[in-house]
Simulated assay, not measured.
Amino acid sequence: MRAGDSRAAGIDAVRRGVAGRLNAPRPAIVETAPAGEPRVVDRELVMVVREEWRVVDRWWTDEPVDRRYFEVVLESGRNVCVYRDGEQRCWFTQRA
């Protein structure tokens, strides 16, 4: 999948109402290592992956959740939570 496709899918999610909530996820541009962990988030180098976890929930509904989360420290020193949404096939960030 090209980065533009992922970004467009994320923007569509925001238009559907994800925006407006406190600490709402925002579409992100993410470059990954071969194993899938983020190496660059929104053009900023990832210095440390502090934690990784997966959430699979609501699989029985029309809106299942399948996400792989990473808590990372960026080159600027910011802590960011970034996740890949397996259903939408795109990346999002949230403040950690």
Score class of each variant (00 low, 15 high):
residue 61 T to S: 15
residue 94 Q to K: 11
residue 96 A to C: 14
residue 46 V to R: 01
residue 27 P to A: 08
residue 55 V to P: 00
residue 48 V to I: 06
residue 55 V to W: 01
residue 43 R to E: 12
residue 36 G to H: 07
residue 47 M to Q: 08
residue 38 P to H: 02
residue 40 V to K: 12
residue 77 G to L: 04
residue 80 V to F: 01
residue 59 W to V: 11
residue 78 R to Q: 14
residue 76 S to L: 11
residue 10 G to F: 02
residue 51 E to V: 00
residue 91 W to F: 10
residue 32 T to W: 02
residue 96 A to M: 10
residue 42 D to C: 01
residue 16 R to K: 15
residue 13 A to R: 08
residue 38 P to I: 03
residue 15 R to F: 06
residue 19 A to Q: 14
residue 81 C to A: 09
residue 80 V to D: 01
residue 67 R to M: 07
residue 54 R to Y: 15
residue 64 P to G: 02
residue 6 S to Q: 15
residue 70 F to P: 10
residue 23 N to G: 02
residue 74 L to Y: 01
residue 55 V to I: 07
residue 66 D to V: 09
residue 63 E to A: 10
residue 43 R to G: 06
residue 4 G to M: 09
residue 46 V to D: 03
residue 24 A to W: 05
residue 2 R to S: 12
residue 70 F to T: 07
residue 76 S to W: 08
residue 24 A to I: 05
residue 32 T to L: 05
residue 81 C to D: 05
residue 25 P to M: 00
residue 80 V to C: 00
residue 87 E to F: 13
residue 42 D to M: 06
residue 42 D to P: 01
residue 20 G to C: 01
residue 43 R to D: 14
residue 90 C to E: 05
residue 20 G to S: 03
residue 11 I to L: 07
residue 54 R to I: 14
residue 81 C to K: 11
residue 60 W to R: 11
residue 57 D to M: 07
residue 69 Y to R: 13
residue 18 V to F: 12
residue 59 W to M: 14
residue 71 E to Q: 13
residue 52 E to M: 13
residue 78 R to A: 14
residue 60 W to M: 11
residue 34 P to L: 04
residue 61 T to I: 06
residue 53 W to M: 13
residue 86 G to M: 11
residue 48 V to R: 10
residue 56 V to Q: 14
residue 79 N to D: 15
residue 82 V to T: 06
residue 93 T to I: 05
residue 35 A to V: 14
residue 56 V to S: 13
residue 8 A to N: 12
residue 25 P to K: 00
residue 16 R to C: 08
residue 76 S to H: 11
residue 73 V to F: 02
residue 87 E to A: 12
residue 72 V to K: 05
residue 52 E to S: 12
residue 58 R to V: 04
residue 22 L to T: 12
residue 1 M to F: 10
residue 48 V to Q: 07
residue 94 Q to H: 02
residue 77 G to Q: 07
residue 55 V to A: 02
residue 66 D to S: 08
residue 60 W to T: 10
residue 96 A to K: 09
residue 81 C to E: 04
residue 8 A to S: 13
residue 70 F to N: 13
residue 13 A to V: 05
residue 5 D to T: 08
residue 76 S to M: 11
residue 81 C to P: 01
residue 80 V to I: 09
residue 17 G to F: 10
residue 22 L to M: 13
residue 71 E to I: 01
residue 29 I to Y: 05
residue 91 W to G: 02
residue 40 V to I: 11
residue 39 R to P: 03
residue 82 V to K: 00
residue 53 W to T: 11
residue 45 L to I: 07
residue 18 V to E: 15
residue 52 E to D: 10
residue 81 C to M: 10
residue 81 C to L: 11
residue 78 R to E: 11
residue 87 E to L: 15
residue 93 T to F: 01
residue 38 P to A: 06
residue 3 A to V: 13
residue 68 R to C: 03
residue 34 P to Q: 03
residue 32 T to D: 09
residue 77 G to S: 06
residue 75 E to R: 13
residue 66 D to P: 01
residue 10 G to E: 03
residue 20 G to D: 03
residue 63 E to D: 14
residue 49 V to C: 07
residue 49 V to M: 02
residue 73 V to W: 01
residue 2 R to W: 09
residue 63 E to K: 13
residue 41 V to R: 00
residue 15 R to L: 08
residue 42 D to Q: 08
residue 58 R to W: 06
residue 72 V to F: 05
residue 38 P to N: 03
residue 92 F to Q: 00
residue 4 G to K: 07
residue 10 G to V: 06
